[in-house]
Design a protein around this nucleic acid. Sequence first.
DNA 1: TATTGTTATACTCTATAACTATA
DNA 2: TATAGTTATAGAGTATAACAATA
Lengths: 168, 168
Amino acid sequence: MDTPPQPHTTGPAPAPGPRGAAFLLAQIGAHAAARFAERVGQLGLVPADVGLLRMIATQPGRSQRALAEDLGVVPSRVVTLIDHLEGKGLVERRRSAADRRNHELHLTAEGTRTLGAVSRAAAAHEDALLAALDPEQRSHLSGLLARIATEQGLTPGVHPGYRNRAPA
Amino acid sequence: MDTPPQPHTTGPAPAPGPRGAAFLLAQIGAHAAARFAERVGQLGLVPADVGLLRMIATQPGRSQRALAEDLGVVPSRVVTLIDHLEGKGLVERRRSAADRRNHELHLTAEGTRTLGAVSRAAAAHEDALLAALDPEQRSHLSGLLARIATEQGLTPGVHPGYRNRAPA
DNA sequence: TATTGTTATACTCTATAACTATA
DNA sequence: TATAGTTATAGAGTATAACAATA
């Protein structure tokens, strides 16, 4: 019994798919990442740049190898990322005196200023993304998300978007 | 007064960066998407395939052009995606009798079975992702996320990962 | 010989544009 | 002439592997 070709009276697509929290997390997460990318894009940066700037600010003098390790990316990719930041005058490579194979990474003064602008953009982003929630709800949400992140073994402050290598 | 090169007594990287809910959403969202990709990968699918299968199941007979419109991607990309699904025997292209330029898209019997397996994988994924929360907390989280999704104008069931075209 | 950083190469993904067949 | 789908081409992004400098 094959159904004859009935014309579809349904107009626009109804809710097609999943309704669970996992899907909402992935959907909102991708949306949040895209909106954040727009904001930092106005500062001439891509999201990956932001993570690197923060890591270098937190631990100045790290080697590129160490950064690659922490981010879970291949060292050659760090070369490209740092090239970009150095080209914009935000980061400096300094040959290590102790081991001249290493490059110690440091923010320039402009790098520090840019990182401040990024922080302001991030605050505005947060506020826009959570516009639907009042302060109490926001705090509740943060608590639930923090539990998930911890239980899932996510490294605080490191976005998984870096690692395109096998996760384990 | 320039600071002399002090050795860093800090060992492993401390929490470098952001702590807000927006970052947690992006971080957990990317993590969730990656874990889901692993699960459907065991069924021979990529996440984009899953969205297409669901859309075709919901509205059989749609044209590729209509799908491209809804997903926010260029029509040529739909060709590639459907090629993959048709090659795996999950989807059928049928020339429309009314307008022979159109391809009506339908799931095969195996496509329907595969979609069932995807649903089971999605349920397992949801459970694993939210392992840190009890049922009441999960429900509360879903409510908060649904509010955000609605306020941000996200289309229910459509993951933003499809559209690489300008968002507006 | 091992390690840091760099460069060269290849591969994947996707959008743009040209093309065909239908209308 | 316009539209649905396809194919061809080109560009961006990134991993792999070869390489140079230093240890």
